[in-house]
Write a protein that binds this DNA or RNA. Structure first.
Length: 175
DNA sequence: GCCTCGATTGACT
DNA sequence: GTCAATCGAGGCA
């Protein structure tokens, strides 16, 4: 079941925690979210929204439940989910996934057969799921890209600053 | 226009 | 452990 807008229209930190265990899917390719990181607006120096940027962080101020895809370091994409209500900046960075569906597709795109290397990093998972600039500012409520609910409860989530991950999951990115 | 740097990765020593 | 790859946004002129 696809997550509704109300799920994202909450405090960024809460959404980041609750996203753990959910399924990120792009068409036939999907993975379980095992690591997230919260980014706020003006208060967070690490967030793009704290800088006086317009174009780049525009999506973060928009309605929740939309994708915020950011390009950096010349060849890397980051996938975020916009949170908070419209007008308030907030986003959750998806840092790593556990491959579930379309694994062969991922291997082909990532050019590796190592399961642990497919989605264990923010830029790796976008490559594995074929997420690019075309998904920026796109809604997760319709279209191929979406986040699915799961029965799993994020009770084992561990918090480290604004980063959340499922304790003991091997697909969590290191560092 | 020109310059700098980034929510990273992977190849190499 | 170190470092290059590589491009668009943002700052400055």
């Amino acid at each position: 079941m696809r997550l509704k807008r109300a799920f994202f229209e909450k405090n960024t930190e809460i959404v980041a925690r609750e996203l753990l265990g959910k399924i990120l899917a792009n068409g036939p390719v999907a993975g379980k979210i095992v690591e997230t990181e919260a980014y706020f607006g003006e208060k967070d120096p690490a967030s793009h929204a704290s800088a006086k940027s317009k174009k780049r962080s525009r999506v973060m101020y928009g309605p929740p439940g939309h994708a915020y895809v950011y390009f950096t370091y010349g060849n890397h994409w980051m996938f975020n989910v916009v949170t908070e209500q419209k007008g308030t900046a907030g986003a959750v960075l998806i840092r790593s996934l556990e491959p579930l569906k379309g694994i062969e597709f991922m291997k082909k795109r990532r050019k590796t057969s190592n399961l642990l290397e497919l989605c264990s990093g923010p830029a790796k998972l976008t490559s594995a799921l074929a997420i690019g600039k075309t998904f920026n500012a796109k809604s997760l409520s319709n279209g191929p890209l979406c986040i699915l609910d799961s029965k799993e409860k994020p009770s084992r989530a561990k918090e480290e600053l604004l980063r959340f991950y499922i304790k003991g999951n091997k697909f969590v990115s290191k560092k």
